[in-house]
């Protein structure tokens, strides 16, 4: 057994366009890996996990770094947009504050200055921050493949994305007026650790009493259970009370599947997830 300090040997390739990315992927087949911000990929390469002889750097690829609102009010966030840029964006803060919040709370300044939203989502490493928020915001994601591209709801990404696909951008619809949001995450060191579990909520209320519509994204759970549809159904059309929030939170925690990790058991994480959902909904209610 050896503890390696060095990154294993590879060739770094720097395509300029999405087309070039696919021609490189086609040429090197399984021998190439995509490299976005690099904070997670380099970590794994140093541990000799998934190391490949060719690394395709995406930093120079044009068309992956848009951050703009279209005429239709849809926010486009390119896959290579840095997390810090999203957190700092006045447009995101104004129209999709939940996304700005989760990006601001993700990792550390260094990680946010290096990490991209696409990398964060695609590598499925720290799914407890960006992905729950994107789900709650009903984001769509554009996936490019060698033969073309598709747009799918972000919550289906885990089914739709193939290993030779490239996630190119997220599309966030404009939110109804007066919509409320909440996000809570649990981490031992809140400003350092990636969230163990988290909950993102987008809530639309009638007269400040009844839940007209709600989406709840869960973090720290398996990808297929990240949208807490059961909990959403409990809330929809009901007068929002502490009791109903507790019931929804319970349903969300039951529906979110998770395993134990080095630090915490699945049982504990489930209890904390319930607390986070409850608090995120309450935060949205008072938003």
């Amino acid at each position: 057994m050896t503890y390696y300090r060095r990154v294993p040997e590879f060739d770094y390739l720097a395509p300029k366009s999405i087309g070039e990315v696919f021609s490189l992927l086609g040429r090197y087949k399984g021998d190439a890996t995509l490299f976005a911000g690099g904070t997670i990929a380099l970590h794994q390469m140093k541990e000799r996990i998934g190391a490949r002889p060719y690394v395709i750097g995406l930093k120079g690829v044009s068309g992956l770094d848009a951050l703009a609102v279209g005429k239709d009010g849809v926010l486009t966030v390119g896959a290579m947009v840095l997390l810090q840029r999203i957190a700092d964006s006045a447009e995101v803060q104004g129209g999709w504050p939940l996304l700005a919040t989760v990006c601001r709370l993700l990792g550390t300044p260094q990680i946010r200055n290096m990490g991209t939203i696409g990398g964060n989502v695609a590598i499925r490493f720290s799914t407890a921050e960006t992905l729950p928020a994107l789900i709650a915001l009903r984001a769509q994601v554009r996936i490019a493949a060698a033969g073309g591209e598709t747009v799918v709801p972000v919550e289906n990404l885990y089914r739709e994305m193939k290993s030779d696909n490239l996630l190119t951008e997220f599309l966030l619809p404009a939110l109804p007026k007066g919509v409320r949001m909440g996000y809570r995450k649990f981490a031992v060191r809140e400003h350092f650790d990636y969230a163990t579990v988290g909950a993102a909520v987008v809530l639309d209320m009638d007269d400040g009493k009844t839940c007209k519509d709600i989406t709840i994204g869960l973090g720290g759970v398996t990808l297929p259970t990240m949208r807490a549809k059961g909990a959403e159904e409990i809330m929809k059309g009901r007068t929002v009370t502490d009791d109903i929030i507790a019931k929804a939170a319970e349903a969300a925690a039951e529906g979110g599947h998770m395993g134990s990790d080095v630090m915490f058991s699945a049982g504990y994480k489930s209890k904390v997830l319930k607390t986070m959902v409850e608090r995120a909904i309450k935060e949205a209610v008072s938003d």
């Binding site: 490299f35 690099g38 380099l42 970590h43 550390t108 260094q110 200055n113 290096m114």
Partner: peptide, 22 residues
């Protein structure tokens, strides 16, 4: 491995982890 910040430098003015950057 990017966990300690000891290798922090600024890149175009932003703090980055030089151990986690090619």
């Amino acid at each position: 491995k990017g966990d300690c910040g000891g290798c922090t430098v600024t890149l175009d003015g932003n703090a980055v982890l030089s151990c986690m950057m090619l």
